[in-house]
C-alpha cells in the first residue's frame, strides 16, 4: 500500500523481460541522433523506441519524458540516460548517450570549423542571421505549445511571468532564479498536509526497506 516501498515498476518490466545488446541500443540512438534535423529529437526518439524497437510502451516513454522534463539537462539526452539505464544499466546509458550525440557532434564541428574560417563573409553571416530569426519564431511556438497548460492556469501563469522577468529584464542569474522561484513554486505545490505519515517517511527514507 505504501507508495514509497513499492518496487519500481518501469525497471522490472523492461530489464527482466528481454535483454537488448549494447550495440542495438547504440544503433537505435545513433539513428535518432542522425535523422533529427531541425530539433524535435524527442519525437524521433519516441518513433524509434516505441514504434521501431518496441523497447518501451508509449506509457513508459511518456513517463521517461516526464522525468526528463523535470530533471536538468536536455530532454533528449536525459531520455537516452534513463532508457539506456533501464535497458542495460550504466553501460546502456553510456552507449545510448554516445549514439545520440555522435552524428550531431561530427556535423556541428564540421560546420563550426568552416564557420570559424569564413565568419567574416557577409553571405555566411546573413544566412546564419536568417536561421536565428526563424529559430526565434520556432522557439516561441514551442514554448507556447509546451506551456499550454501552465499559461492557462493563474498561479502557474504568474510563475511563468515572474521567472521570465527575473531572467530577461532583471538579469538575475539562473542559479538564484531556480533556488528562489523554483523552491517557492514547489512549496506552492507541496503535498496536502493531511497525510503526516507520508511526510515522515519521505523525510526519513531509511525507515523504508527499499534501499541499498
Amino acid at each position: 500500500m505504501d507508495p514509497v516501498t513499492t518496487p519500481p515498476s518501469t525497471k522490472s518490466s523492461t530489464s527482466t523481460a528481454k535483454t537488448v545488446s549494447l550495440s542495438e541500443i547504440f544503433k537505435v540512438f545513433f539513428m535518432a541522433g542522425a535523422i533529427s534535423f531541425g530539433g524535435g529529437v524527442v519525437a524521433y526518439l519516441r518513433e524509434y523506441l516505441v514504434r521501431g524497437s518496441g523497447w518501451l510502451s508509449d506509457e513508459d516513454f511518456m513517463s521517461a519524458l516526464e522525468v526528463s522534463e523535470t530533471l536538468p539537462g536536455l530532454n533528449s539526452v536525459n531520455i537516452a540516460v534513463i532508457t539506456g539505464d533501464d535497458l542495460r544499466r550504466i553501460p546502456g546509458a553510456i552507449v545510448a548517450v554516445l549514439g545520440l550525440m555522435l552524428p550531431g557532434t561530427v556535423i556541428v564541428m564540421a560546420f563550426g570549423i568552416l564557420w570559424n574560417q569564413s565568419r567574416q563573409n557577409p553571405l555566411v553571416g546573413h544566412f546564419l542571421l536568417g536561421i536565428a530569426a526563424a529559430a526565434a519564431g520556432l522557439l516561441l511556438v514551442v514554448s507556447l505549445q509546451l506551456g499550454k497548460q501552465q499559461l492557462s492556469k493563474l498561479p502557474d501563469l504568474l510563475i511563468v511571468i515572474v521567472t521570465f522577468l527575473a531572467v530577461s529584464v532583471f538579469k538575475i542569474s539562473l542559479a538564484w532564479v531556480l533556488l528562489g522561484i523554483g523552491t517557492l513554486s514547489i512549496w506552492l505545490y507541496r503535498p496536502h498536509p493531511s497525510r503526516p505519515a507520508r511526510f515522515e517517511r519521505l523525510l526519513h527514507p531509511r525507515h523504508t526497506h527499499y534501499r541499498h
Partner: peptide, 26 residues
Amino acid sequence: IRFAGSPWRVSVQQGLAPVAIGLMFA
C-alpha cells in the same frame, strides 16, 4: 523511481513546470 507515487514527486514536477516554461520564454 524509488519515490514513485510519493506526493513530493508530484509537487516537484508541478512546481518546476511553470519555472521551466518561464525560462524557455526567456
